[in-house]
Computed example of a mutant assay.
Amino acid sequence: MNGDCKNNMQPLRLQAAEWVARVYSGSFSEQDEINLKKWREQSELHETEFLEALAVMDDFRDFGISPQDVAQPRHGGIRKSIWAVAAVAAVFMLSFLGITLRDGPEAPSVPLDADKAQLVYSTGVGEQKTVTLGDGSTVALNTASRVYVDFDDQTRWLILDQGEAYFDVAKNSGRPFVVSVGNQAITVLGTKFNVRRSKGEISVAVSEGKVAVHEKLDRQDFVKRITPIFEGSSEAVGGLKHYMLAQGAVGNFSTGENFDGAVAIGNPYQHQIWRENLLSFSGSSLEEVARELSRYSQKPVLVEGEDVRQMLVSGVFRSDELENIWTGLEGLLPVRVEERAGEIVILAAN
């Protein structure tokens, strides 16, 4: 019985692998997206097989190979059709044999609304992960982050529930990509940007394209009210308050009921350097540094003494090498680092 079931699943799994290879091919069209959506909606098994094939393709990153490298030819002499067959074979064989490099399910279904199941992607403390969505967009999650995903025909809707994420959004002018954070939302049509959610505020840094940060809207009238912003109107329908951020802009916004923010030209790279497992500080107080390091540590990082808290730190550190950071701080400053029960403490050297 089990053998027959596996044999029956092979054609479906192969179709899923073919779709994933097409998503990464570099020529995934809007019509392809429509056809893929119809294919995935045929049954729960179709959706499950697609997500599994998508996750397996993402696992190539653990070998230092990007999924795009798998799905696209490096040399002009190799025909795309042949290369696509090879990509499909790789994904199909890995998924069929059950080979996975992940610690657990990549995209379990969880209820976001009472009447609808959603996808959720998350990372643990010190973990980072990049996932590819059904439209070809990618989301890189930083430490201790979680994002919910819910796409429909009109919008590509996500909720950044906690933490930080970098979004590389596939262009689709007829289907906005929305990231909801607290009482605010960020809408784009196709761009690259970083969002960090912390207590009471969000920061947005735009690497490419433009984004609109605005009050959160009901999905029913979202498209009608947000479209004028991207058509150049200074006022959205219904007086929607918003900030427009172009490439190079960095903005900080409140997440509470009273929407407010400030936008300036900055260095977006500094806001996404975490993707290289790097932390950069320039004249930051040791208290600020400890707060940032706590995001990557299994134990909270505390600083004892007001004088020690105000010591200034400049330098670049690797977030995945905390022991080296403790040693580096002891070399830079007159401090010592102690590991106590349930916490890391930085205090004066004498």
Score class of each variant (00 low, 15 high):
residue 223 V to L: 15
residue 244 M to V: 15
residue 131 V to P: 00
residue 234 S to N: 12
residue 329 L to R: 02
residue 138 T to I: 03
residue 302 L to Q: 09
residue 83 W to A: 07
residue 209 G to C: 05
residue 350 N to H: 10
residue 132 T to F: 13
residue 131 V to D: 12
residue 342 G to C: 02
residue 278 L to S: 06
residue 247 Q to S: 11
residue 259 F to M: 08
residue 13 R to E: 05
residue 270 Q to A: 12
residue 146 R to T: 11
residue 292 E to M: 05
residue 151 F to G: 10
residue 43 S to D: 10
residue 35 N to P: 00
residue 197 R to A: 13
residue 270 Q to E: 15
residue 221 D to R: 03
residue 4 D to L: 08
residue 38 K to D: 14
residue 85 V to G: 08
residue 289 V to P: 01
residue 108 P to L: 12
residue 70 V to Q: 07
residue 326 W to H: 05
residue 38 K to P: 00
residue 244 M to L: 15
residue 305 G to Y: 05
residue 157 W to A: 06
residue 68 Q to V: 15
residue 260 D to N: 15
residue 234 S to K: 10
residue 289 V to E: 01
residue 308 V to F: 03
residue 258 N to V: 14
residue 305 G to R: 06
residue 38 K to M: 08
residue 206 V to F: 05
residue 117 A to S: 07
residue 109 S to E: 06
residue 326 W to Q: 02
residue 144 A to Q: 06
residue 207 S to C: 11
residue 219 R to S: 13
residue 167 F to E: 03
residue 344 I to V: 09
residue 205 A to H: 09
residue 307 D to F: 02
residue 308 V to T: 15
residue 318 R to F: 12
residue 266 G to V: 07
residue 285 S to G: 13
residue 343 E to H: 11
residue 217 L to G: 06
residue 345 V to S: 08
residue 223 V to P: 07
residue 254 S to R: 00
residue 49 E to M: 14
residue 43 S to V: 06
residue 290 A to I: 01
residue 345 V to T: 05
residue 293 L to G: 03
residue 24 Y to I: 03
residue 91 V to E: 04
residue 235 E to S: 15
residue 134 G to R: 14
residue 339 E to P: 00
residue 301 V to K: 04
residue 62 D to G: 01
residue 247 Q to F: 04
residue 168 D to H: 09
residue 185 A to M: 15
residue 208 E to I: 00
residue 120 V to T: 12
residue 54 L to F: 04
residue 282 S to F: 09
residue 161 D to Q: 12
residue 78 I to C: 08
residue 295 R to T: 06
residue 50 F to N: 01
residue 331 G to C: 00
residue 62 D to F: 14
residue 96 F to S: 15
residue 75 H to E: 14
residue 309 R to H: 04
residue 192 K to M: 06
residue 184 Q to M: 13
residue 321 E to F: 06
residue 293 L to Y: 10
residue 10 Q to D: 14
residue 165 A to Y: 07
residue 126 G to Q: 04
residue 335 V to K: 05
residue 159 I to P: 01
residue 86 A to C: 04
residue 95 S to G: 05
residue 101 L to I: 00
residue 53 A to P: 00
residue 67 P to M: 07
residue 340 R to P: 02
residue 84 A to Y: 03
residue 152 D to R: 08
residue 241 K to D: 15
residue 190 G to S: 02
residue 285 S to T: 14
residue 18 E to R: 08
residue 313 V to T: 06
residue 13 R to V: 06
residue 220 Q to N: 03
residue 246 A to G: 12
residue 265 I to S: 11
residue 82 I to P: 01
residue 20 V to R: 06
residue 163 G to I: 04
residue 112 L to E: 10
residue 37 K to M: 04
residue 19 W to S: 06
residue 37 K to E: 12
residue 240 L to P: 02
residue 239 G to Q: 09
residue 108 P to V: 02
residue 69 D to S: 11
residue 33 E to D: 14
residue 156 R to V: 12
residue 18 E to C: 01
residue 253 F to Q: 07
residue 13 R to A: 09
residue 169 V to Q: 12
residue 271 H to W: 13
residue 170 A to G: 07
residue 55 A to Q: 00
residue 204 V to M: 05
residue 227 T to I: 00
residue 281 F to T: 07
residue 86 A to Q: 09
residue 33 E to C: 13
residue 261 G to N: 05
residue 105 P to H: 03
residue 98 G to M: 04
residue 46 H to V: 01
residue 8 N to S: 10
residue 194 N to E: 13
residue 175 R to V: 07
residue 188 V to W: 02
residue 314 S to V: 12
residue 327 T to M: 03
